[in-house]
Each structure stands twice: as structure tokens, then as C-alpha cells.
Nucleic acid binder design. Sequence first.
DNA 1: ACAAAAGTGTTTCGGCTACACCCATGC
DNA 2: GCATGGGTGTAGCCGAAACACTTTTGT
Lengths: 226, 226
Amino acid sequence: MSADSYNQVKHLLAIDCAIFGYEEGEVKLLLFQRGIEPAKGEWSLPGGWVNGSESVEAAAQRVLLKITGLSNIFLEQVHVFSDPVRDPGGRVVSVLFYALIIIQNHDKELVRNHGAHWFPIEKVPPLIFDHNNMVKMALEKLRAKASYELIGEQLLPEEFTLLQLRQLYDAIFQRKFDPANFRKKVLSLNALRRLKAKNTTESKRGAYYYKFKETSAKPGERIVKL
Amino acid sequence: MSADSYNQVKHLLAIDCAIFGYEEGEVKLLLFQRGIEPAKGEWSLPGGWVNGSESVEAAAQRVLLKITGLSNIFLEQVHVFSDPVRDPGGRVVSVLFYALIIIQNHDKELVRNHGAHWFPIEKVPPLIFDHNNMVKMALEKLRAKASYELIGEQLLPEEFTLLQLRQLYDAIFQRKFDPANFRKKVLSLNALRRLKAKNTTESKRGAYYYKFKETSAKPGERIVKL
DNA sequence: ACAAAAGTGTTTCGGCTACACCCATGC
DNA sequence: GCATGGGTGTAGCCGAAACACTTTTGT
């Protein structure tokens, strides 16, 4: 920052959220039917304006709470979109976030009332403006994160089996991981605690439940080569 | 984006640039003495306001041109800083970029006239506001990039020896790379073209000059484990 | 009995690391 | 002749990948 003064052109500032959830073996994205002109009624990422006295992160959390009923959601910045003509309705600079939610925990009623819908990431419809590009970048970011550290704490129920975790990774990367190798790799990270209980609904023999250790800080640990 | 209309609170929007150069075996950062209140005269990252009809990237390029005399500089977004009280002078949202320049090419006179100075990255002084944190994040981004692909095209002279490239990496990661292994790894990437000419100023025997191939698109190729 | 997932073990392969070693040349 | 960087070769280690194999239990 450096200029003559603080008396400068001001900008409309928005945030958009790529909200990912995991359900039925698929990574899903929450999309909205846009409520305002232009492009009213078309599919878009949920978003909102940034208020005068909140950070972009706070704005994103506010929007997330309004839509999903959940607070304290995991989110990370992805990119700023600022092409002067990206929005036909006017000059709007938008900060894109991706968010991870445990789909089972969210308020489905609320989502429905907002006219929103969960789409599997392989079946994202055409979106307004540059939102398809946003989804692409958000997915890349998600994959990059998942390849550097074990994710799932923000996507799976608190207790889960290694099968479920592996299928999550299968869904994120759209490939099949070797069950034996995935197990060994994941356990070697020492990030999970095995529970006493077993899940017998998904296999005859039964698989132990695991949960994430309440980990203060784990170093970057590579899971997958991209 | 979704709300009642486009009649919303507007924001001061700025960009800040962490400009990296490489000289005398050191990665250096270009810092400014801030020209406006508050904190006038203190060290800061160069930056500027975003105009009404330009993208944040265009604003960054404009600032870079003004300061270094160079256009078409390599830059990438790092992060958005939007804490409402990050700038005591008012509510300013800032998009941080890092930029790489070939320090030998830039207009030293211009830099001097702006009261700017190159600091080795290990000797960055206390900066205004959240700028020290910005430098930290920009450096992390630079290292992440350098570990995924071979950089140097934007930091070294057009023709360079493998010694110079290795010393650049030494400087970026603040460690010593094994000369033999570095050479083999770099050459295996197939991104450099060996020239006829040799450099005999830095070694007795003389080392071949290399230059980057005019590569359309190289896939992400890991150089260094972080 | 068989299918299907759980869980363990083994072999192979490739890349990274750490060196040893020769080359060329200015001092 | 010796120090310095240039450049090549190689042995060892480690992790990823591929896959064989045993266990358990519902059907």
C-alpha cells in the first residue's frame, strides 16, 4: 500500500463458497439458484457481500451459517476473481473459498428452503459467470490439500472405518486406492486413534472404527502423489 | 454472490507485492519507505490501490512497472488480508502477490528514487501492519512453487550455469543441495537447453551455459521435498 | 461353500542420498 | 601440484506399488 491518501475508489466485495460434502461415496458440491438479477434462477456458488467491519473469512462463515446452519466450518481461501467484467451486474471483486462440511450434520431443511441442491462433483451443471472456473480451482485446492495431509475430519462422521476413509479418497481423486497400501500409509501417519467398537454393517467381519486424534499440529505429510 | 441487490457497502481495495530478486547468492526482497500516514517512513511492501476498472493482477502489474520499470512480470496471488483493523488508517482489504524479477534488468535508478531498498530475505526489518506476516506467506508460496517446478527463468539472467541455478535453490531453501544430485535431477526434468558457450569466470574448467527451453507447458514436477 | 471386506506380509522397483572418483584449469 | 568447481558413476536406503494370502462372518 502506498498512495496519496485513503480517499480512493471503492469496490463491491463479495465472497463465494465452494462447499464440499461427502455422501454415498461421492464428493458433492452445494449449489444455489441465484436469487437476484442478472442471471436470476441460474445455478451458482453460494456467496454474499462482505460487510464493512468483517474479514472475508467472517463473511464466508456468516454465509455458511445462514445456508447450512453450521458454524465454525473449515474453510480456506482459494483465489481472488477481479476481472472488471466478470459480473455483468457490475464491478464486483470476489474472494473464493472452499469449505468442508460433514454433510450428515447440516440442516437439510435450511438448504432446501434456500433452493439449493447437492451435486456430485462430476455432474456440476453450467454455472453463472466464472463460477465453473471457480469450482475447478476449488477442487484443485482440495486435492492439493488432501495429498499433503490426511483430510476427512471435516467430511466424515466423527467415527469412521478405514474403508470409508479410503472411499472418500477414491471419490476425491476419482481413482481406486489399493486397500492394503492405503491402510498402511494412513496408519503410518499416526493421526488416527482406533476405537473399541467395530462397524459390521459394511462388512461381514467387521472393521474397527477410527477417529482423528485431537492433534495440536501435524506437519505436512504427503499422502498422494498428484 | 447472492443478496438483495448490488447496492452494498464498498471497500477500499489494495494490492501489496513481495518482489523477489536474486543477486550475489542471496534472495532479496524490495521494500519501501511508506509515503503516507499512518506509519509514514516505516518499511513496507510496495503496494497500491486497485482502480475501478482493473483486475487486482493489473493493479499489481501497474505498481510493478512504476517501481521497477519492468512490465509483464511474473506474479501470483498469495492471500487476501482483510482483518477490519489491519490498517490503522482505515478499513482496507489487501490482496498480496509475490513477484519474481531478474534483478539485473530492473531500473535501479527508479527504485532509488522511490526510496526503496533490496533486503536479503534473512534480514527483513520490522514492517508496518501485517506486512511481516505477508512476507512470510509469500516466501512459503515461493518455496512451494520452487519445490514443484524448476524456477529460475524469472530470477536468473537468460543464460546461466548449473552452479548459479543450484546456488539460487540454496538461497531459496537456505540449505545446501548436493551438486551431483542437483545436476542430475534438474537435467532429468528436460526443461533446460545446453548452450555452446561456457562460463569460465566462476570455475577454472568452465561450465556450460544453459537456458530454459521455451516450454509451452510443463507438468508439475517435484524438485525438492519440503 | 462362497463372497466380500479386514487385515498382514512379501517382493519389486524407482528415486533420492551420499559418496567416490576423474577432468580441466588457474594459481 | 593443489585447490576448485565440472561432471559421471554407483551402492544403499526407503517408500510406493503390486499382489499373494489368511481371517471372519453373513448369506
